[in-house]
């Protein structure tokens, strides 16, 4: 038991939670916890790794930096925001979790997420599966041609890439072009029938952002900027999230 005792002596040191507060607007209200337990009551990750959002926040508040920046629980929280949704004090626990992830040395972060982020960083498409612009272009054109032929009602259907001035800029999860290209088609058909003026971008078409999950600020910002820039460069009006 004694090993478990939290000992508080001497002056206040800047703790992990203080650093996060500096980053967030209004400090994310991180200090305001009433310990009411609404977050823990509704958090799907409550109980995993013997943790819940209230306990996590409490440990942060008590300055237990060592433990809060090493608990694997931060990778089990999906930052789904059920906590902040009902929190009387609107405390930004998801951002606290995000920053706790970021406090992990990059090399210690879950390999699966890290690899996906690294992959996305390697190509301008942002694809976590590393799909290069040309590969994407090839798959799209190939599938399109196949369907135009097999289903004559859709002979006019288009799946443009980098169409300048298109109204919608579409993103697409990498899974379809890579592993199940037929799954691309229903969306195209819908857009076609609705008469939507749309385009993919050869850069930044991938919808996923594992760098965000990895809490790699520099990388996720990069990934996001690539997509946004492509949409802007093409003069699209609406960035249309397809998932």
């Amino acid at each position: 038991m004694t090993a478990n005792i939290v000992s508080i002596t001497g002056g206040k040191q800047s703790a992990f939670i203080d650093k996060v507060k500096e980053i967030l607007p209004q400090g994310g209200n991180l200090n305001l916890c009433l310990t009411c337990g609404a977050c823990a009551s509704g958090c799907p990750a409550t109980g995993l790794a013997d943790m819940d959002p209230r306990k996590f926040l409490r440990m942060c508040a008590m300055g237990m930096d060592e433990e809060v920046t090493t608990t694997p629980w931060v990778w089990m929280c999906t930052m789904c925001m059920r906590c902040i949704y009902v929190c009387p004090m609107e405390i930004n626990i998801p951002q606290l979790v995000f920053n706790a992830r970021a406090a992990w040395p990059r090399e210690n972060r879950p390999k699966g997420i890290r690899d996906s982020c690294d992959m996305a960083m390697r190509t301008e498409t942002n694809s976590a599966m590393g799909t290069a612009p040309d590969d994407f272009k090839f798959v799209v054109e190939d599938v399109l041609a196949e369907y135009q032929e097999a289903q004559p009602e859709f002979a006019d259907m288009q799946a443009p890439i980098d169409k300048e001035g298109a109204y919608f800029f579409l993103n697409q999860n990498s899974r379809e072009p890579n592993t199940e290209p037929d799954e691309l088609v229903p969306l195209w058909k819908i857009l076609h029938l609705a008469g939507a003026d749309w385009t993919y971008g050869s850069k930044g078409w991938a919808a996923e952002n594992y760098c965000l999950f990895l809490a790699d600020n520099k990388c996720w910002e990069h990934v996001t900027r690539v997509s946004a820039k492509q949409a802007d460069d093409l003069g699209c009006k609406v960035f249309l999230n397809t998932e």
Partner: peptide
């Protein structure tokens, strides 16, 4: 709707390697 229960697929959980925890999380869903 807005109060839906997260399935546990988000936030990189699928790739994080904590498969058992992820499924425990998803059991409610």
């Amino acid at each position: 709707k807005s109060n839906n229960y997260c399935c546990g697929g988000g936030g990189g959980f699928l790739q994080s390697g904590f498969t058992e925890a992820r499924r425990a999380y998803g059991k409610v869903k």
